[in-house]
Simulated scan of single mutants.
Amino acid sequence: MASNQGQQPPIATVYVRNLEERVKVDKLKEALYTIFSEYGNVIDIVAKTNLKAKGQAFIVFDKPEPALTAVEELQGFELFEKPMQVALARTRSDATVQRYCSEEEFEAHKRHRMAEKERKKAAEAEEQKRLKRPIPGSGVEAGARPAKSARGPGLKSTAPGAAPVVPDEYLPPNRILFVQNLPDDFDKDALTAIFGRFEGFREVRMVPGRSGIAFVEYESEAGAITAKENTAGMPLKNGEKIMKVTYQRQ
C-alpha cells in the first residue's frame, strides 16, 4: 500500500443526489456501477436506506482523474427517469484513505470521522431539546406528540406502560463518560493516566463501594467525544478486561 506521509490523499469520490428513492439499494448500486465504471475503476459504492441518506450515493474510484471526468460528463444524466446531480465529495472516503495512507493515518482518519459523527449527533440532540422546551404559559412542550403504545426499534421498556429506555450505546453525547468493566484494582490514578491525555479533562470520580465502574468528566462534549472514541474497547490487564465507555445517562 502506498503511503503519502504528511500529504492529504486526493478526492476520488463522486457524490450523487436526486436519485430515485423507491428503487431498492442493490438495484441502484448495480445501475450506478454500470454507469460510472465507464470512466474508471470503481472500488466502492455507498448507498444507504435510512431516511436521511435516501436519494444519495457515493461512488469511489481508485484514482481522482476518473472521478473528475465523471462529474463533468454525467451532470444531469437521467437514471430511473430522474436527472442525477453530481459533484466531487467534500471528504475522502475510507477506501481512498486506506489506499493512499499508512495504517496509522487510516486509523486516525476513522477516529476523526467517528468524532465528527458524534459531534453532529450532539448538535442534533441539542436542537431536539431546544424544540421540546416548554412553551411559556402553555403547560406543554414544543413539538410534543401523543405517546405511542408501540416501541421503536432499539428501545426497551422496563415495565408495561413505562417510557422506553435508550440503550447505552445510543445515548447522546455529553461531558461525562460512564466507564465500566474495569479491573477490581483499577484506581483513580490509573484512570487519570488514560483519560487525562485528552483535551478538557477535569476529573475521575470513582463510585464508593462499587468496583469496576467510574465517571470521567470533561469541560466540553468535544473532549468527551474524543476520549470515548479513543478508549472504548481498550483492553486492560493484559486483555483480561475490555473497557466499556459510554456517555452518562442524563
Rank of each mutant, 00 (worst) to 15 (best):
F198Q: 07
V42G: 07
D94F: 10
I35E: 08
Y100F: 15
N4M: 12
Y15P: 06
E21Q: 14
L88K: 06
H109D: 09
L79E: 03
M114N: 12
N230H: 15
Q56I: 14
P167Q: 08
V140W: 00
R99F: 06
I213E: 09
S138P: 03
H109I: 05
Y33K: 15
F201T: 08
P66F: 05
A89I: 10
A232I: 00
A70D: 09
I59G: 06
A162V: 01
P9N: 08
E219M: 09
L171A: 02
L79H: 05
A53H: 02
I11R: 10
F201Q: 10
G40P: 04
H112M: 14
V42E: 06
A163R: 12
Q8M: 10
L79F: 05
S220I: 03
V97I: 11
L28Y: 01
M234A: 08
R133G: 01
K24D: 07
P134S: 03
P160R: 11
R210S: 08
A163H: 03
E81D: 13
P136I: 04
T34P: 00
T246Y: 14
A162D: 10
R111W: 10
K24V: 00
P134Y: 03
H109A: 11
I135S: 07
F201D: 09
E21G: 00
A163W: 04
L79V: 11
R119T: 05
K132A: 14
M206T: 11
K188G: 00
K148Y: 02
V165M: 04
L88W: 09
M234C: 06
F178M: 09
K52W: 08
D185R: 13
L88A: 05
H112D: 15
E240Q: 12
G76R: 04
P164G: 04
A47N: 12
L28M: 15
V23E: 07
L79A: 06
R130A: 13
R17H: 15
V23R: 06
V216F: 05
F77Q: 13
A57W: 05
A222G: 02
R202Y: 02
K110A: 04
A2H: 00
K63E: 12
P183G: 11
G55S: 09
D168Q: 12
R205P: 01
K156S: 07
Q128E: 15
A150I: 10
P153G: 01
A89P: 06
R145P: 00
M206I: 07
F215D: 04
L191H: 11
I194G: 00
D44N: 13
V140P: 00
S211A: 13
A53Y: 01
L182D: 07
L236S: 05
N4A: 06
R249I: 00
A162Q: 07
K241V: 02
I242Y: 02
N4Q: 08
I43K: 08
Q75D: 09
A2N: 03
P164C: 06
F195T: 03
P167N: 07
K54P: 06
I45Q: 07
P172G: 10
R92S: 08
Q75M: 06
S93Y: 05
A159Y: 09
R210D: 05
F106C: 04
Y218T: 03
K82W: 01
D189E: 11
P164Q: 04
R197W: 00
G212Q: 08
Y39Q: 03
S220L: 05
G223W: 12
H112N: 14
Q75K: 10
T226I: 12
T158F: 02
